[in-house]
Amino acid sequence: MTDTALSPAPVPAKASPFYQLEVLWVRHWTDQLFSFAVARPEDFRFRSGEFVMIGLPGEDGGKPVLRAYSIASPHWDEQLEFFSIKVPDGPLTSRLQKIVAGDTVLMGKKPTGTLVLDALTGGERLWLIGTGTGLAPWLSVARDPETYSRFGRVIVCHTVRSVADLAYRDFFTQGIHDDPLIGDEARAQLTYYPTVTREAFETPGRITDRIKSGAVFADLGLPDGFDPARDRVMLCGSMAMIKETGELLETYGLKEGSNAEPGDYVLERAFVG
């Protein structure tokens, strides 16, 4: 009998925290805004309104470059869509804006966030208020059948600087009505309310100013102000808008909610900082 040297057991490969996903299409809205979609992994599940980490491999073998992106698709969709700004010297978007169909991007495996219906108590009207690419989660929530079963009216408010920045305007005024799952409900219950701050427009100015003046309520044929018994609100976009609108909602008696304790309005603190 001879002694035999035992080989060390192989170390199992550590599972990657990211999916590597094929880019299906890219659309450039302006020189500052673009959207893209990736193939959805079969085992990926999320709630409409959640966000996930999106990125690209690091250059020269460095660590991946990632940032949080709201998923602009409803939870049932076979594609995962994202809406992004372009930052010329941004660590991620300077490269991400150059992707084309067939390229590969990284996506985290753990979606999360508070811009979900679960974080709100019951109400009659749902306000989805966003600035810029803060529209992204509303593209998800507004295509979820549960949204229309829980709320009689859904109001999507989108504030941008220029008319050209009103990405998805045609979708919210026409395209969503042809959605095979919620088209009829959207036609009957959804209102799209865009505002533009730096160009002439039928509803000019910041959404916060139109709330303060009462213009938004008059335009929509509603009583002035938010009613904590009826109105529920989600906020996403610039930190200034979220802070100001949150303070306004509190003056009307609305209370902030979370996944742990649903309330009258929610915002995404991961983006606010």
Results as ranks from 00 to 15, higher is better:
G61P: 07
D3T: 08
L106D: 03
D144S: 08
Y69W: 07
K243L: 13
A229N: 11
E42F: 00
F151G: 01
Y192C: 05
I99N: 01
E199P: 03
T203Q: 09
R45I: 05
P74V: 05
T30Q: 08
F82T: 04
H177R: 14
D224Q: 10
L220T: 04
G257V: 03
R198G: 11
T208P: 01
A215C: 01
S162T: 12
T159Y: 06
G152S: 15
T131C: 05
Y265T: 00
S7R: 15
T251M: 10
R169M: 09
S213Q: 07
E42R: 14
S238F: 03
A15Q: 13
F18P: 02
R67G: 14
R67H: 15
T114R: 11
G237N: 07
L128R: 04
V154T: 11
P17S: 12
F271S: 04
C236D: 06
M107F: 13
D60A: 13
I155W: 09
A229S: 13
R45M: 08
L126S: 09
N259A: 09
P57N: 12
D179R: 02
L139M: 13
D170A: 08
A218D: 12
G61M: 08
G132R: 00
P74N: 08
T195A: 12
A167I: 03
S48A: 13
V272W: 06
V105M: 01
L120K: 02
G273P: 00
G61K: 10
P12Y: 02
V87E: 15
L92Q: 03
D144L: 06
I54V: 11
Q32R: 15
T173N: 08
W138Q: 05
G58R: 11
P57L: 10
V141K: 02
L139D: 05
S149P: 00
D179L: 01
E185R: 14
T245K: 01
L33F: 12
A9V: 14
R169L: 12
D264Q: 07
M241Q: 09
S7C: 11
V163M: 05
V65P: 06
L126A: 13
M1I: 08
K255Q: 10
E244D: 15
P88R: 09
I54L: 14
M107H: 11
A9S: 14
S48L: 03
R143K: 10
E261I: 01
L6S: 13
R269M: 00
E146V: 11
D219T: 09
D118R: 04
S94F: 10
G130T: 03
G122V: 04
G263S: 03
Y69R: 03
H75K: 11
